[in-house]
Design a protein around this nucleic acid. Structure first.
Lengths: 143, 143
DNA sequence: GAATTAATGCAACCAAATTGCATCATGACT
DNA sequence: AGTCATGATGCAATTTGGTTGCATTAATTC
């Protein structure tokens, strides 16, 4: 993706264009898996931690990123490819966590099956599947 | 549940019988929803934080409790009604988070639908549904 | 009931995340 | 382009959640 496209993306989500934000966006768009705060901090060490925290939360608020809960407590962040806005997030894709490489992926191709819970009002569903990802399985079999 | 039953429960999971552990168990068995660490700390303030943390982790290790991840980062803990042991946990029930009262419930009656992910090896699945729980819906409609 | 082993409480510690505030940059407007 | 209001950034300080070490106390085994 080009610089001007990142700029547009920010503009479209009513966010000011800054170096830090462009760099964070770039990082997300050039990675197949979700990123933890630590990932970002390591990759973009010239920005203050506080700034990165605030960048993440503004991105979540404006519908650019979504938070992916994890069983170990460390959240990751994934790009919103759907039409998320400031109004709210609308995700129904599956999240996969690989126990070998530790990466968390969004699987936009796989939708969370709707669960019927009589008596309850269901607003959101979040499915986290864990196991071994494609890449790690291949490198196992390859040797 | 009676005191002697809690004792048996601890014994069966190779845990020593202590006041703190009995009280924690009691708390879980007398609540319909999952409990966060904060919940426990408030309810059992005569025990040290450290002791409660260690109680929780020993219970998880021995298969009495399971950790329920949440999107907001605050984990909750729920009773294992299934046959979990030190060897491992075996849960496939749905977790529900109410956005009104904030409580997280285990729904043992509802199982997580198996997702097929070609190329991946699936070990575990975790489904968190959020919305409005039965009780909160009723109190809405009641007025 | 004595010995062994584990649980508890306290203090200190550590890491993750947040807040306040001064400074600097962005975008709107002339 | 230049000015101004507003928002973003970086630093220091603080808060929060959780852990570790260790001495004391309690539970289990014989």
């Amino acid at each position: 993706m080009k610089y001007s496209e990142y700029k547009k993306l920010l503009k479209d989500h009513t966010l000011r264009i800054t170096d830090c934000r462009i760099n964070v966006l770039e990082k997300f768009y050039n990675t197949t898996h979700a990123l933890s705060f630590k990932n970002l901090e390591d990759a973009l060490s010239d920005y203050d931690r506080v700034t990165l925290y605030r960048t993440l939360s503004s991105f979540i608020e404006k519908g650019l990123l979504h938070r992916i809960p994890s069983d170990d407590g460390y959240a990751s962040y994934g790009l919103c490819r759907e039409d998320c806005t400031e109004g709210g997030h609308h995700h129904d894709h599956v999240h996969f966590k690989c126990n070998v490489c530790g990466h968390i992926e969004c699987l936009p191709a796989y939708h969370v099956p709707k669960v019927e819970l009589p008596g309850y009002e269901v607003n959101e569903q979040n499915l986290i599947v864990s196991g071994v990802c494609k890449i790690c399985r291949k490198s196992f079999n390859g040797e």
